[in-house]
Design a protein around this nucleic acid. Structure first.
Length: 553
RNA sequence: GCACCCGUAGCUCAGUUGGAUAGAGCGCCUGGCUUCGGACCAGGAGGUCGGCGGUUCGAGUCCGUCCGGGUGUACCA
């Protein structure tokens, strides 16, 4: 509908002035109309004419059954008012299927085994889920994948401390460990401290790191050391899965670095031969300076693959496994420059994949009034801490024991910010029952469902509607924006557009609800239709954010 | 030092990619309703959009520069 109108106006401009122009219809303030365009302002310069004259000519010539009236305002905006039928049609429109048939791999969350899940993992998971849902809503077949370091120096650090704790290579001692994930986290922290402060420990850790790689090379699952490693590794993955289930995330595939490392190592060797990578100080590096980037190490002087090589291997694995049309990688923005280097290298051997890859980054989570967090130290804000503090706030506000509202509150609080910069998370505000919050939206939905549930099915059947009263029309107008908002959110991979819209929609509904009765009103059938599509849109929108919309609360 | 990101109301954030009077939420002040779920609605105060300069009919948005903050910058991930 919108595109149709844009083309109609563009066609008129061509007929009148013999120019090709891109017409973009925007949603102006309601007082101005349903759609607006500044095309006359754009053209006036090119044509050397008064913008209002240009607008006048366009206004007189454009004819479309969806338009009930047009007006010119301000410096030369053309405002369109749509017919009620057109508004109804818009309200039934589905998001565009721009990615119909496309395969999209979305990589996100990426926690490392042996380490704790912190608030950043919670945030990035919530963002990734929403982005994945958005892509699905536009017709893509989405695969959610998760990349994590089950090999690498951090594993060496954890293993070093694990061996200390259980008194050597005694796998049986692991049976005595309670609070497994907590225990692993503490081991990792202790290992990190030792690595930094104790040279003997440092060299032992470096050695343990090599031994872990060797386990894979030997396919060793039986030696005492192997048993310890594999058991603790499994504990980590169990802990991840439990957490993801709790927050409503799921992944189609976990790519452990142990799987991508050999692929990356092999590719790096090839790239060394072909001259893309080169030797430097015993390491194999990519000189990024020639491309305006910086130099990064792919294989260290020990012969071990770094994160860079493992990431290289990951892109190969993704291509082999999915042959994606698009590949989205979601991470914190601290690795933007790093990722540019890796993608530049990918471009040298698989330009198509590099071209199809988007690195979407977000900032850090900061607790309102609190400090930020570092994953290397013990004083971090854990993911479960964020959930717990939200649940405490939720329970004290509502008496509700169930944590689903708290989770919805967290997700919405995270997603309502534009992805990119750091976000400040305020637990009290997030669970607030008023204002721009998840619970407000869930409640606004439940209230509409409650109205609908009071009507017998026979009464609620839809009837054709011709004319809307002012408040009804405002609500309908807002409902009709949904598909466009989703389209924009998909185009820019920005879930916050959906949040903003859903809040405005709910406000519009609450305004309507304040002044108009639904049940037992002469206009009941018209209004029920509106309430119904409102509730469906709200539910749909919340689900795009991976937030459930229960019928009752 | 260099590179990238950020700076909008007291606080937390939007701002339809250069357009109309810069908008929300929280907090503060005033009022309404409290019979479909009040977890509501209406209104008010609060802004030299970090500063300066430039491009443009038009700049929060683009360019330059300065100030302030964050991140990254070779064998960690």
């Amino acid at each position: 509908m919108r595109q149709e109108l844009e083309q109609a106006i563009a066609g008129v401009c061509k007929d009148l002035f013999s120019v090709d122009v891109e017409v973009e219809l925007t949603r102006p303030d309601e007082q101005f109309g349903d759609y607006a365009t500044n095309v006359a302002l754009q053209l006036s310069k090119k044509l050397n004419k008064n913008p209002r004259e240009v607008a006048e000519a366009i206004k007189e010539t454009v004819k479309h059954p969806a338009i009930s009236s047009m007006s010119i305002a301000g410096p030369g905006f053309i405002n369109l008012e749509l017919t009620d039928d057109a508004l109804v049609q818009l309200s039934e429109q589905k998001p565009e299927q721009t990615l119909e048939g496309d395969i999209v791999v979305v990589e996100y969350s990426d926690p490392n085994p042996f380490k704790v899940l912190h608030a950043g993992h919670l945030y990035t998971s919530v963002v990734g889920d929403a982005v994945a849902k958005l892509l699905e809503s536009s017709g893509a077949k989405v695969y959610r994948v998760n990349f994590g370091g089950d090999v690498g120096l951090h594993v060496g650090k954890a293993m070093w401390s694990i061996l200390q704790e259980i008194g050597g290579e005694n796998p049986d001692k692991l049976n005595e460990v309670n609070e497994r994930s907590e225990w692993l986290t503490q081991c990792y922290v202790a290992g990190t401290t030792a690595y930094e402060n104790d040279d003997k420990a440092k060299s032992e850790i470096i050695n343990l790191n090599k031994r872990v790689y060797q386990l894979y090379a030997d396919n060793d699952h039986d030696s005492p050391f192997a048993q310890i490693y594999w058991t603790c590794r499994q504990w980590s993955y169990d802990y991840f899965k439990e957490f993801y289930t709790r927050i409503g995330s799921h992944f189609d595939k976990y790519y452990p670095e142990s799987e991508t490392a050999p692929l990356g190592l092999q590719k790096a060797q090839e790239l060394l031969k072909s001259g893309v990578l080169e030797k430097s100080d015993g390491a194999i590096v990519f000189k990024g300076e020639e491309h305006g980037l910086h130099t990064r190490v792919f294989i260290n002087s020990q012969g071990l693959p770094t994160y860079e090589a493992k990431d290289l291997g990951l892109t190969i694995a993704k291509t082999n496994d999915y042959h994606p049309d698009k590949s989205i990688i979601i991470t914190g923005n601290d690795i933007v420059e790093y990722m540019k280097v890796v993608l530049k290298v990918v471009q040298q051997f698989d330009p198509e994949h590099a071209q199809a890859t988007t690195h979407l980054t977000h900032g850090m989570v900061k607790l309102a009034g609190g400090a930020k967090m570092s994953s290397r130290r013990g004083n971090i804000l854990r993911a479960v801490d964020v959930i717990d503090v939200a649940q405490v706030a939720n329970e004290s506000a509502t008496g509700q024991k169930d944590e689903s509202t708290a989770l919805a509150a967290i997700k919405y609080a995270f997603l309502k910010n534009r992805i990119g910069g750091d976000i400040v998370y305020d637990p009290a505000e997030s669970v607030a029952l008023e204002g721009n919050s998840g619970p407000y939206l869930q409640y606004a939905h439940a209230r509409a469902r409650s109205i609908l549930s009071k009507v017998k099915t026979a009464d609620s059947k839809q009837q054709p509607v011709n004319r809307f009263e002012k408040d009804e029309r405002s609500l309908l107008r807002k409902i009709g924006e949904y598909a466009e908002v989703v389209d924009r959110a998909v185009q820019y991979l920005m879930p916050h557009h959906v949040c903003m819209y859903l809040y405005e929609l709910s406000q519009e509904f609450n305004r309507f609800y304040e002044h108009n009765r639904v049940i037992d009103d002469p206009r009941q059938s018209v209004r029920l239709t509106l309430v119904h599509s409102y509730a469906d849109i709200l539910k749909n929108g919340l689900e795009l954010l991976n937030i459930p919309a229960p019928d009752t609360m």
